[in-house]
Amino acid sequence: MSDEILNLSALQLDALREIGNVGAGNSATALSQIINRKIDMTVPKIAIMPLGEVPDVVGGPDAMVAGVYLRVFGPAPSSILFLLPRDSAFYLVDMLMGREQGYTTTLNSMDESALMEIGNILAGAYLNALSHFTSLTLLPSIPALAMDMAGAILSVILIQLGQMGDHALVIETEFTTESDGVKGHFFLIPDPGSLNTILAAIGVKE
C-alpha cells in the first residue's frame, strides 16, 4: 500500500538518478553563467530516508537556511526546494548585487527578489531536463522565499510526503563554487502519484 518508494527497483532508481544528474547539470550551468564562476556539483544522491532524517542532510533541523520553494504544475505535480545555508545565501547575494563579500548580514527586499530569481532559473533549467526526458509539460509556479530553520522550511514538503508514507525519496545535488563560497541543496519532491507518472513516462514502470 503506502511507501511505494520502498519498492523501487534498481533500474528505476538509476533512471531517477540520471534525470537528477542532467537536471542538476543544467541548473549548475545556469548558475555558473549568472555569477560567472565555475560551479562544481556532486553526482546526485538519491536516497530513501525516514522523513525525520531529511533535515540532517542540510545540517540539522535548527540550521539557518534560505529556501526557495516552487510548485511544479502539469501531469506530474511536484515541489522543488532550493536550500542554501545562510552564509551561502549572503555570499550569493553579494555576488549578484556586485557588493563586497561579507557586506550582507540581512536580506532586503531586493536581495530576496534576487534569490527568488536564482531559484526560478535553477528550477526552470532542472524542469527543462525533466520535461525533455519524460515528454511531460512541467511548469514552475512563481517562487516563494523563506529564511528560517531548515526543519521548519522542509516541513512544507515533508508534510505532503507524510500523507503517503513515512519515507522521502530525495534527489539531492550539492553545488559548490571553486572558492567554496556557495553551497546549495536542490530537492525535487514528487507529489503522491507523480512518481508513477514520471516512471511511466520514461518507460521504467513495472
Partner: peptide
Amino acid sequence: MLPDSTQARSAE
C-alpha cells in the same frame, strides 16, 4: 505533522 490519521493513506 498531520492532523488526522483517518484521512491519510498510510498510518504506519
